[in-house]
């Protein structure tokens, strides 16, 4: 890549006034560094990944409404987590966390267990028991 070919596309970095460093060669063939504001191929990939997360959150929300899962799964998706990440944050086995996705089990959880989840999601136990209104 030549220095003048370093892409300067608009990207999500803009909001944070952030530029990343790239390596490229100058006219003499010497390696130099220069900043880039972003590159479309990865901005599109990132946008798609974010859309994907929104979709997962919305699906989880609908499942909570339909009483097919507990709010724990919803908040897990909202925090871009998966089962193994969430289980390591709350310090419980994966199968146990998965069990807490069942609304019937969730409704019988002890306050102490609920607090663990609430703390990880940085919300109150009260908030944990419902899902966010859109």
């Amino acid at each position: 890549m030549k220095k003048e070919e370093i892409p300067q596309d608009r990207s999500n970095l803009e909001t944070a006034k952030f530029k990343e460093l790239c390596y490229a060669v100058d006219d003499e063939g010497q390696y130099v560094t220069a900043q880039s504001t972003g590159w479309d191929p990865k901005t599109i990939a990132l946008d798609n990944a974010i859309k994907d997360i929104y979709e997962r959150v919305e699906i989880a929300r609908q499942k909570v409404i339909a009483n097919q899962t507990s709010p724990i799964e919803y908040y897990m998706e909202l925090h871009k987590m998966d089962l193994s990440i969430l289980s390591s944050y709350v310090g419980m086995w994966k199968w146990r966390v998965k069990r807490h996705f069942k609304p019937s089990i969730f409704n019988k959880l002890k306050n102490r267990t609920l607090e663990k989840y609430a703390e990880v999601f940085e919300i109150s136990v009260n908030e944990l028991q419902q899902i966010k209104k859109r």
Partner: peptide, 18 residues
């Protein structure tokens, strides 16, 4: 497509210098 997008991100996202 999601997988492909993730490959590009791992290859090009902040930190690889391109």
């Amino acid at each position: 497509n999601h997988y492909l997008g993730q490959i590009v991100r791992m290859q090009e996202e902040i930190g690889t210098g391109g």
